[in-house]
Every structure is written in structure tokens, then in C-alpha cells.
Amino acid sequence: MAGQYRSRVSGIGSYLPEKVLTNHDLEKMVETSDQWIIERTGIERRHITPEGQATSDLALEASRRALADSKLNPEDIDMIIVGTVTSDRQMPSTACYLQSKLGCRNIVSFDLNAACSGFIYGLSIADQFIRTGMYKNILVVGAEVLHRFVNYKDRETCILFGDGAGAWILSRANEGDNQVIHSSHMHADGNLAELLTLPGGGSLVPPSQAVLDSNMQYVSMKGREIFKNAVRAMAQCCQEALEANNTAPEQVDWIVPHQANKRIIEAVADQFKFPMEKVIVYLQETGNTSSASIPLAFDWAVQTGKIKRGQTILLTAFGAGLTSGSILLRY
């Protein structure tokens, strides 16, 4: 365990439920329009999980695809980390359900709640375990069934969120392999926690009829403040990653940001004069899928031939907390 190893992305996979909720569908549910949504967010549709399916079911499909891509078997996995804010239940963790459904060994499995930054946080943790030599193959998943926590009478939030899952397998790199994670950088500013929250259902405001009557079981967001702080946090995290690796923006092949709002993404890219042609944008198809958004966008970019092996990629995210993070890697 004493050695210093590096981790590489050995496999990726993603999954979107088949059912689609378009902007035109939302026009029939709340006072909004397709044009209004696209102009303000860039979102055209989002995917909705059918009744009876849980977050672990979406995670299972994405994980199976990541395993196939890595040419590994479930018994090869040493740890499972699931980033989610919509776990199957308060307890046990979604990761434990996933471990059982995949047929993995009796391995450490846990959920991580860093909201939309959850996948970045999970990758960073997995990277540390591989660097120490403790584990060789770690499954990191971002998975959400967010539509069940959205008030479809609130046009500020219901237009934004969708369901989906993405999974990566980090593996110990061979000596001399340069396709590795270079560094990760994570932050949280709890002073801004109330800007994006799900007020009811926790220990502070436990489940009750009063919670349901006041719609406290749904996501609550202060959009303008979130926008301003998201741009600031993501830009700072990107700058931190570039400086830590003595890398100029033009040396980065692609930025894969959290897919929350196209205007936020454009504002972050503008901070570095980074051309939008080199920024992966997939939110038109998915909406904001929280912790699943980066692996979903990344997998789509690989499948469509944009991202290729050997390229330098910068991941960046922000989320409720307010959490933020970035990772620089060579894929």
C-alpha cells in the first residue's frame, strides 16, 4: 500500500430512461413556452424514469455499460461510490443496492451527497484510494431520479431537471501510462446553502403532512443568485486546475462542465476565452441531471466521436451546498 500509483479511466457508460418530457409537454402543465425555456436554459427535453424504477436501476444500467467498456467483471470492482441526492431510500445507501444488483463481492459501497458536484467528488475520492495502492478498480456513479422531487407547478424549477445515470471505472494505471487523472480540486461554501435546497424530509424538517401541504418536499432554488455564484465557482475551479498542472487553456482539448444552464456554461468559457466549439454541451437532451450530468455528457461526446483517447479534458461542476470542483485528466 505504500506506493504512489496513478488512476486512469478504464471504462465509461451512461443511461437515460426512454420516456421524454419535452418543452412542449411542459407548456401544457405550467405557464411557460418552448422558446422561453430554450432562450434561458438551452434545454429542449429531459428524460423521466418510469414508475417502479429507482435511482439504483438507472445506476445499474450505466454501470453495466462501463464494465463492458473496461472489459472488467463485477468481481473485479473493489469499491463503489454513488453520487446522488435522490437515493432509493434514506437508508441503506443506493450504492449497497447497486452492489447487490451488479453481483459484486462484499466490497465497500457508499453514497456521496455533494449535489451536482457529486461525480467530481466521487472521482477525486476514488483517485486517492488508487493512488495509495489500496484498491485497483473503483466504480464511480452519478445517478438521479430528480423529477420526483420537482414541483410541476413551479416554472422556475420544473423546466430544469431530468433523470439519468453515468458511470466511470477508475483503474490503476500501468507504469509510464500518461492517460491518467492529473489532479482534482474541490470546495464548498456552506454560507450559500439556502440558495438551492430541498427543505423538507430531513432531520430539521422531518416528513409530515405539513411538509406535503407546504410543498417542502420539492426543490427550492434562488435562480439569479445560483447563476452568479455558479459562474464564479466553476471559473475558479478551472483556473485552479490549470495552474496546478501548469497548463494553458489552449492545451485543453475539451471542457466538460456540469450541464445546468447553457448561459452558465457560456459565461465560464468566456472567462478563459475558451471557444464554445471545444465545450461539451448536452443539456438540450437531458436537462439538469445533477451528479449524472458530467458522465452523461462525457459518454455522449465519446460516442459521437468528439472526445477521443489521449485528449486532455477539464471537468468542472457546481451544486447545492454550494459545492464546486474540477478535475484535469488525459483520457
Results as ranks from 00 to 15, higher is better:
4 Q>R: 13
37 I>K: 01
37 I>C: 03
41 T>S: 14
42 G>K: 01
44 E>C: 15
45 R>V: 09
48 I>W: 05
64 R>T: 01
68 A>L: 00
72 L>V: 00
74 P>M: 00
76 D>C: 06
79 M>L: 15
79 M>A: 12
80 I>R: 11
80 I>M: 13
84 T>Y: 04
90 Q>H: 01
101 K>R: 12
102 L>P: 03
108 V>N: 00
124 S>G: 10
126 A>F: 11
130 I>E: 11
132 T>Y: 09
132 T>H: 10
140 V>T: 10
145 V>P: 01
147 H>L: 04
148 R>I: 03
175 E>I: 06
177 D>K: 06
177 D>P: 04
189 D>P: 02
202 G>W: 08
213 D>P: 04
220 S>V: 12
224 R>C: 06
226 I>S: 02
226 I>F: 04
238 C>G: 13
238 C>R: 02
241 A>C: 05
247 T>E: 03
250 E>M: 13
258 H>S: 01
267 A>K: 04
275 P>H: 12
280 I>K: 01
291 S>L: 07
295 P>Y: 05
300 W>Y: 15
300 W>P: 08
301 A>L: 09
302 V>L: 14
308 K>Y: 09
308 K>Q: 15
309 R>S: 15
311 Q>W: 10
313 I>T: 05
314 L>Q: 08
316 T>G: 06
331 Y>L: 15
